[in-house]
Amino acid sequence: MQIIIDGKKIDAVYGDTILETCRKADIYIPTLCYHEAFGGQGRCRLCMVELEKEGQKKMVAACTYPITEKIEVRTSTPLIKKTRRNIIMLLYKRAPNSLLLQKLFREYECQDNSLKEDPAERCILCNLCVQACQEIGSNAISLIMRGTDKRVASPYDEASEACTGCGACALICPTAAIEMVEEGNKRSIWNKTFELLACERCGKLYTTKEQWEFTAKKNNACASDRQLCESCRKKAVAEKIKAYQAAEH
């Protein structure tokens, strides 16, 4: 089906969100809580766009609005710009030491004001870390409390049995808010310290013991499988294939 975005006719798939459609058509809409792997959450509201339907205008979140009929979308009006600027300002005031927000604050030409800043905060509660942890299957962290007290934590802020120290949460975090410290063969994250395993082949410290066991269990591997880092694993597979091909000939 066809819809109109910023005056241009765009092909859209029924049921796709406005954001997905725009990304395919190379139309830029800013987001902070969106990741292709998880779909739209509607948390950060940075992707607000103006929608016109049967002569009525309204503002909607592009990441959750499904296209099911002929609509016209505008992705950048003065009101949208102002709304995005205020959202950035609010997030900057929450996490003023986040480099990403400092950059956005400048890009969106936000005005400073008298609101207080929290120098210790970096998290913007986009929930991507929780989604990543769920996706992996650990479910070690979650959103706790509510309202202005809401935050991401492991239960009781203690070392969680479920956490394997894989670090996916820290990797996906857009504001580097999750502290993952590595010293020697130890990795600390979410109040828990892990022992890092060395690759049997190249000796690089590449994963935690818990993570290796977790993946091995998930993949039905047996304990005799070798502990290899990613690049060595690829090499090992390539060698196996070569050897197989050689035997064939």
Partner: peptide
């Protein structure tokens, strides 16, 4: 501020700032 679920930025951060 206590009853907002805290999911979206405008409500969570906006209410907190208006309250401030």
């Amino acid at each position: 501020a206590g009853e907002s679920c805290g999911k979206c930025v405008p409500c969570r951060e906006g209410i907190r700032r208006m309250l401030e």
